[in-house]
Design a binder for these strands. Structure first.
Lengths: 345, 345
DNA sequence: CTCCTTTTTGGGAACATTCCCAATTTAAAT
DNA sequence: ATTTAAATTGGGAATGTTCCCAAAAAGGAG
């Protein structure tokens, strides 16, 4: 219950030596008598000494801490990215501070301020869907704190980025639907503000074009990723005079919501309507029918982001140029598009 | 790209006033001429001034940061607890540092050291399943840093705790199975080292006893919560000369794994065997059949933990005694135990 | 204009640590 | 014993901030 935490000065006084010597003993500096070091180490142990990282960081001007900001972490995606990043960063001796902005721009700005105030050495970010202004991230850049974007990236900032090939993933998804005989393929798209939504929309369009299928504007709906809206829009699509025979959803939760709506209406999946998601959430293999989806290497995204950050962190004087890494995706076929999928994953 | 971050001294020099005045202007201290304050605020804005939290924390000996340690955060449970806690803490002006120990005792100890070194004001913990020795948490207590346990709690430490009524939840689960006509009820239990596993086991036992059903030792298996083991043990149970007609699993992922094994064997659920899980993961409503389970107030656990911590944090001089909060659970009936559940949630 | 009060400002200590440089001690060589 | 080199130690600055106390400036009353 000792209110006061042990400092090197306490140790120095008790052993009647200088704080410099104690510091050397504790940090493993060679210029200390081995006997002295032993005495210091022993007393430190005995007094529960814990170095004060605040003082060290203040002095050295580096915290060996990296901030990770994500818009949410209820879905499996962001936690898994964080874990991937953390593996790499821990290996390199960096600690991690995680912030989630709850898809709120205001919270994001506040979190950015707090991270800057606590002097993180670097920042890994996926921004909220509300974020239009990126000044709160540019400050880091100006102050020489490297920033890496992933998943949702700011196209206007000259920093390192990690994404998956959303265009290609979407293309493969729609191509699969076409190849299984679908012609009226709807797309529940994400907000226009997110580059990855736009890329997926482009992949959808180009796949249709390549197979000579005209795009029907009424079949493409952008929405804000809240599941209530998904519900409304799926019902709207099914109520069309000519309803779609397939749906490509921006992500798996949306696809699963659609699946529930469609099943509740008594339609058969995949016979009446086929569904493809995006991201291969763990749940997607367990629902009935299994959800065909586009798999992405989630942990790798985190690892790559951390690697890119370390690159900037280590070669600060060299001033390495930022890099963008684009990872591949994978079509995973399950029962929501094909009656008896062979490669059921 | 200014390597050097602006300090109050920079501002003071440029305005030819003392750093004390700048400090006062910035912190909203009343003893500053309003004109001076405006000049300071303006220049601070212009120079991108961000206060150095490290220096302040060093001086004031408080970081207004709380550490949250969890064993993992892939499952939905821990992220949701964290969000609940964060709501309350953010409201009170505290920042949060999240550590996950990946179910590794060693990582947990290292994380604890790092949090202590960075001088968090408080700690919210759910420990790993490997943790037997709690010395790394006791240090916090000794140094006057309040600790709150949740979900997995250390029974030997005199600190605040938040749990759900695991005994009662398990009792309700097994009672439900009995009331739907089951007699050979197996239990896939968690490790003995976790108090909540033990409570659930006790609830299971007492429910059997109360309804006059003898406990069969061969139907109770404790395991380490890895899904591969769950698979093996479910198969083992089904291979018994007298297989069970119901299974109460320690948690939902285990129950879902069991469900997959049972379905793969061509057995009918719930006719041949009924299944109950624990925790009501979001996935459980979507699988086929829906999983009957015990719901627990996940966000509330986090909120309560944060409240208990704040209690200790605010009344440090009063030395409030630690409190334990036990939250209620709820039986959620779905298709894995009853053919046509009315209250399908 | 002088004295007193109030407002505003500046100087310096304190927080815990590292690191440079000088001082001291110890060891080695002559 | 004396000189020189090496090992070990101590002192103090520096990091960015707050806060106390004293000093200075401004305002008010007589």
């Amino acid at each position: 219950m000792s209110r006061h935490l042990t400092t090197i000065i306490d140790i120095a006084k008790q052993l009647d030596i200088s704080k410099s010597t104690v510091s050397r003993a504790l940090t493993g500096h060679p210029n200390v008598n081995e006997k002295t070091r032993q005495r210091v180490l022993e007393l430190a142990e005995q007094l529960d000494y814990q170095r004060n990282q605040l003082a060290i960081s203040l002095l050295t001007n580096q915290t060996r801490t990296v901030g990770i900001m994500v818009p949410e972490f209820i879905s499996f995606f962001f936690p898994k990215v964080i874990i991937g990043a953390q593996e790499v960063l821990a290996e390199a001796g960096y600690n991690v501070v995680i912030c989630h902005s709850n898809e709120s721009y205001e919270t994001e700005v506040n979190n950015a301020k707090a991270l800057l105030a606590s002097r993180v050495d670097g920042l890994i970010v996926s921004h909220t869907k509300e974020t239009r202004n990126f000044d709160h991230f540019r400050v880091f850049q100006r102050k020489g704190v490297p920033v890496v974007f992933f998943n949702r990236v700011c196209e206007d900032m000259n920093v390192s980025k990690v994404t998956v090939d959303d265009y290609d993933g979407a293309f493969k998804a729609v191509e699969h639907l076409i190849q299984t005989g679908r012609r009226r393929i709807a797309h529940l798209a994400g907000p226009d503000s997110l580059p990855n939504s736009r890329s997926r929309l482009n992949g959808y369009r180009d796949a249709l074009r390549q197979y000579g299928i005209p795009e029907e504007p009424e079949l493409v709906i952008s929405y804000d990723l809240t599941l209530e809206k998904a519900n409304i829009y799926v019902n709207h699509l099914l109520n069309l005079p000519q309803p779609p025979d397939a749906l490509f959803a921006i992500n798996d939760p949306t696809a699963i919501e659609a699946l529930d709506v469609i099943k509740a209406r008594g339609l058969r999946i995949p016979d009446d309507i086929a569904i493809v998601g995006f991201s291969n959430d763990p749940i997607s293999a367990h629902i009935e029918p299994g959800l065909t989806t586009i798999g992405q290497p989630v942990s790798e995204i985190g690892q790559e982001a951390a690697n890119l950050l370390m690159e900037q962190l280590l070669d600060k004087e060299e001033n390495k140029p930022p890099r963008t890494v684009v990872l591949g995706t994978q079509l995973i076929v399950r029962g929501s598009t094909v009656r008896n999928p062979d490669n059921r994953v």
